[in-house]
């Protein structure tokens, strides 16, 4: 547990010291979501109709921007090799790195999302569901991203390839997340898609680190 905490704290420290890397996905998210209302009609109904989709697609794409750095920096400076050779089980290392990545990329996005949603005239009643759905979807996304990043460690500029690997697998998150938010905007029951997101999160968090650990071993060879 000591090693797990050490990895999480180190990665958080590094993320805040390289704040531009941290800010890029958030800036992208804010810019894309702010441009849509400007480009489209300011009509409230139209904004509300497209808003949920725009929010979820922007959130997904902005998350992809930070994927390459998940293991790349550690691989380049040799610290990944040191972690893999340490007595810390590789699965624990993977979970710690995924948690740190989720904290620095997804949590700020989850905090910002309700503010951005207001620009699309989403009813305030839908905001807790939006936040809840993002809270359930983003851990799965981080795990999928980690698998993609680990598998492509040996490839330079692997960002687009990771996107190709992760996006198809992440499409259920987009579908269920947008559906839950949409239903909440119209005051309907949201349990179905939220349960599905939760099931995916449990599956990803329990099985994903094993896949990441295996991919990391292959990736450093």
């Amino acid at each position: 547990m000591d090693a797990f905490g050490a990895i999480v704290i180190r990665d958080l420290k590094l993320a805040f010291r390289r704040w531009s890397e941290l800010a890029n996905p958030l800036i992208f998210f804010v810019i894309v979501t702010s441009l849509f209302p400007l480009a489209l009609s300011p009509d409230e109904t139209e904004l509300r109709t497209i808003g949920v989709g725009v929010l979820w697609v922007s959130a997904l794409l902005s998350s992809l921007l930070a994927l390459d750095g998940l293991f790349r920096n550690d691989a380049d400076d040799g610290s990944l090799e040191q972690l893999l050779l340490s007595p810390v089980p590789v699965g624990i290392t993977a979970v710690a790195k995924i948690l740190a990545h989720w904290l620095v990329t997804s949590v700020p996005l989850i905090v910002l999302a309700p503010v951005v949603a207001l620009a699309f005239r989403l009813p305030t009643g839908a905001l807790p569901v939006l936040v809840g759905a993002l809270l359930l979807a983003t851990p799965t996304l981080s795990v999928l991203a980690a698998i993609g990043a680990a598998l492509t460690l040996g490839i330079r500029h692997s960002g687009p390839i990771i996107g190709l690997l992760v996006l198809p697998l992440a499409s259920p998150l987009l579908i269920f997340g947008a559906r839950a938010t949409d239903l909440a905007a119209f005051g309907e029951a949201t349990a179905g898609p939220l349960y599905l997101l939760a099931a995916l999160a449990v599956l990803a968090v329990s099985v994903g680190p094993i896949a990441v650990a295996a991919a990391l071993r292959v990736g450093v060879e």
Binding site: D77, G78, S79, E81, Q82, S86, P87
Partner: peptide, 19 residues
Amino acid sequence: PERRGEIAYRGHTEGVKRD
């Protein structure tokens, strides 16, 4: 894992975080 600590490897990269 508990025996992996018996081997230490130092390659061409330092394994040091510059930040």
